[in-house]
Design a protein around this nucleic acid. Sequence first.
DNA 1: GCATTAATTTAAAACGGTTTGGTAAAATTC
DNA 2: GAATTTTACCAAACCGTTTTAAATTAATGC
Lengths: 340, 340
Amino acid sequence: MKLREFAQQLGLSPTTVSRALSGYPEVSEKTRKRVAEEATRLGYRPNINAVRLATGRAGAIGVVMGRSGEFHFSEFMGGLAERLGTEDIDILVSPMDDKNPTGEIQLYSRLAVSGRVDAVIVHSPEPNDERIALLHKLGMPFLVHGRSDIDVPHAWLDIDNEGAIRRATSHLIDLGHRRIAMINGRQGRTFSLHRDKGYRDALQARGLPFDPRLVAHGNFTDELGFRFARSFLEQTPRPTAFVAGSMMTALGIYRAARSMGLEIGREVSVIAHDDVFPYLTAENMVPSLSATRSSMRAAGARSADLVLQLLSGRPTEEVHELWPVELILRESTAPPPEGA
Amino acid sequence: MKLREFAQQLGLSPTTVSRALSGYPEVSEKTRKRVAEEATRLGYRPNINAVRLATGRAGAIGVVMGRSGEFHFSEFMGGLAERLGTEDIDILVSPMDDKNPTGEIQLYSRLAVSGRVDAVIVHSPEPNDERIALLHKLGMPFLVHGRSDIDVPHAWLDIDNEGAIRRATSHLIDLGHRRIAMINGRQGRTFSLHRDKGYRDALQARGLPFDPRLVAHGNFTDELGFRFARSFLEQTPRPTAFVAGSMMTALGIYRAARSMGLEIGREVSVIAHDDVFPYLTAENMVPSLSATRSSMRAAGARSADLVLQLLSGRPTEEVHELWPVELILRESTAPPPEGA
DNA sequence: GCATTAATTTAAAACGGTTTGGTAAAATTC
DNA sequence: GAATTTTACCAAACCGTTTTAAATTAATGC
């Protein structure tokens, strides 16, 4: 059913009906109510594409999805979706071929120019992120999940990675650990750099030396967690504790320790970062995993909020949030064994 | 830049330019080429929303995302995105409040009516799935990832869950297991039913009794894997083998066995279904996990293909694919211990 | 070289809403 | 009670394409 017919049935003009449904003030309360009721009764819904054309708004926000296995992606999306469910705004997922970095910029610029989305969410930014520069130049509203040092104003939502890892590392030092290994995220991402910094600062604060042989970077997979942990544990003297970037990494570390007959929570301590997944919880690991924790789903939901704020005119410079991160101590952390 | 201006610059009518760009035959090769060149040179791109309104096509396919933790979701999406990256088609993710089942039907009907998407992908169908009936009634093209027994024609892509689990179970029986527990997916989903059937048929074929106390249903989480495995293992006599629905479930089973001092691959055998994740691999578990395996990402990519076929007119009845599932034997399966 | 057919191109009508700029009726002011 | 403002509604223009139906130009047949 079209607006025309619907309006006719009500004995009103299309104009009035359109306004009534969009909640404009210049239509009487009585009429508005009648229109709303009849709309649901007769099942009238404005054609979304006509609305989009007329208003110039796309009614969607874009998320670019990398190919590599990002298991936290669906949690973030879930949060986003949860919040956006009540608005009439869609989430548009664009695939990105991350083997081809030029393609990424093209993709963003296509996304921006094409008018498919009103705003974009940028993930895992780098300190000098081309995408941010591009989106700013194109005037496309965007929110960065994470942060960038780039000299371009950008709205962002980030967790305090640096503080979290500093606390985690400090705690391990407090327990008496002296050789603490760090399995971090992908090289070059801001969040990895922040975590590196938290780690180094904690060491430095206690006068412990920084040993590059105890730090590794890579995707958050069980596989890499295992491989790095294994190679670290083969060093002599071996590290007595690990700071890890993700739950999957922690699984790999647990596996590596077991494979070498080392007991987690006694001979090797582990603290990992937990994005809070419904299907794999730090609490339930054996031994239960000490973790820095921040809900990815909550970040998704809040990101939706912030994007909506941007779209309704809140100035970019005002929109940034740095979330504190909990440190939850469980059984995987303990003082190092005597003599280690 | 609008079509009007662009056409004017070329000294052509909007009609001709539009046709040239869409590849219609009634425009000369020479003109077409010129138009294409100038379009890239001047950076003309048709306004997507105008196109959508005029053509009635949305240029997007919809995916409904449940709230509960579905870790395979991002793999499926990744595959979808990978394939759709080359087309000019978007993926629209709609949030679903799965606490409110009525909401789901409303959501689908909104999605269908609103004209936001040209087709929809339905996940985890039930044998008599309301969504399928609805989409059929509304005339919205859709692909079911999975299958349904409903008496409504529907295109689908599914893996041979029944066969996979039958083989897995049979293999365990061949090894000598007699008490085999099954931790399946959510009650009522077609795939769970198929797996149940595969399991029961395998038992029956060898004259083994079906014991409902050895079967559990639930979400694919480490937590449930642990709880169910634990309660099964506390029975006397305890099961000597498990068939599990997911990698996370398998993690839970491993944990449960360990917590009871039982050695996987010796005292307890495990076969799980593996959707193939880059961040957690069956091969790498300790002991390595025997698995029925089928790539979720490949299913996503192929689903995109099939949806495109549907949209280009291939009849629904022709579109269904049943994928065979590999059974990969690793260290987690062995004959039961003597006397068990 | 003219009639006929085929190949190109075009003007104008959708597509289905929103928004601008008014107008008539009702409410308020003086 | 006339003048003014406010309220409630409407006709028509517009958003930027595609597509239908018709017009023009080029090619072919004889």
